[in-house]
Design a protein around this nucleic acid. Structure first.
Lengths: 223, 223
DNA sequence: GTCTATATGGGGATAGAC
DNA sequence: GTCTATCCCCATATAGAC
């Protein structure tokens, strides 16, 4: 569905890198492990890509291009449905969140590699990763921040920025498919239910974003 | 305030490890870098701790013991204030969140090492880390899940588990002090304002947790 | 484009003197 | 408890044959 043709060397390496980076983290994954999993020679990684870092960048570029295009398209659809008003907050959130989560399903045979990697990447240090994030998310962040501002005109901008930060945290952690869920739920949640996850996250985030801004005055700290 | 006596070799190593693990990630940080930063000999790490993984576990154990005790104490205080009723949702959230964020301030001279590390650790793969998380957070997760259930009696348990998951994601991402904030806010948020951050996060999460559970029926997916 | 072989450096861990 | 010196392995990257 995504790529029906038999994968060549380059694609097999991207697939393997995507999966192993997601499973073990960037620094902990060796090029040897990747080339072995892909069934290609070790030297191929330096022929097709330049370096390990460039391989990571290629992994991201391959998915995030289409993914971000889909996000913007869903946002545009929501805008055209809304006419001159702001689209409903829920539709903005869904346009942002759903494409990432649906990769879980659409890439099912290849495993949950990329979404999990995308969820983790926000937490990984390293300069190259910062660069990848800025390049891939800059426009998306600007467009959705603008849409959220219109949908929440009464929220002070600083408050909105914080809440977007919280939102990204919730999204990333959920995408990462973290073990932490098992800590608390004992297996009672259902990770494969992608649409349910999106819906739950949208409901949660919409309510959080709509909350009245915190007032300055609360009881003084005792500690 | 936390440790007035001059730090010995072991403490200096824990300090350096905490900071470097937070800045560079576990796998990307060498023991050589840690011992150099601490001003101790390389071999000391294998004398005082057993291995690199055991050093990481020691870093966590040193902070999470007091931190989790403080969380339970704040929860107990909220319970006693509330009498026979459930404590307000906001106070439960604050009991859970505030101790972690206040380390940012209380450990200020040593830098934001541990909170940032704690925020990132949820996203790091690796079996040892999973073990650390389970041992350090098991009781906390159980106690706070119970308190949240009482405060939100109408919320189906499965929904609550998901929302706790979202909550941990927002907390972790915020603790990690992520670069992503800069992406969206352009420096208009104020990370050092710890109490403000706690307040904002509590307001956001309380609203999300209180949202009516999502209904099954929404418009059918077009894609 | 793909392979073998290797250069070059760094990693964690440890032995054994002091 | 702390040091030096070293073991042994694995990392990324590249050279050069096919």
């Amino acid at each position: 569905m995504i790529e029906p043709s038999p994968p060549g060397t380059k694609e097999r390496m991207l697939d393997a890198a995507e999966r192993l980076f997601a499973e073990r983290g960037f620094a902990a994954t060796s090029l040897r492990a990747i080339t072995a999993a892909a069934g290609v020679n070790l030297a191929a990684v330096n022929y097709h890509f330049h370096s390990k870092e460039a391989l990571l960048a290629a992994v991201f570029a391959r998915r995030l291009g289409p993914l971000n295009r889909q996000r913007l398209e869903l946002l545009a659809q929501a805008r055209s449905r809304a006419g001159r008003r702001s689209p409903p907050l829920e539709e903005i959130l869904e346009a942002f969140l759903a494409p990432a989560f649906r990769l879980h399903r659409d890439l099912a045979p290849a495993g949950p590699g990329f979404p999990s990697l995308m969820g983790r990447i926000y937490a990984e240090p390293g300069e190259h990763i910062r660069v990848i994030l800025r390049e891939q998310f800059g426009e998306i962040a600007a467009r959705f921040t603008e849409a959220l501002k219109e949908a929440l005109p009464k929220l002070p901008p600083a408050e909105l920025y914080w809440r977007i930060h919280f939102m990204i945290g919730a999204m990333a952690h959920t995408l990462a498919g973290s073990r932490a869920l098992g800590l608390v739920a004992g297996g009672r949640c259902d990770p494969p239910d992608v649409e349910g996850t999106i819906r739950r996250l949208v409901v949660f985030l919409a309510a959080g974003l709509r909350a009245p801004a915190a007032r300055r005055t609360r009881r003084s700290r005792t500690r």
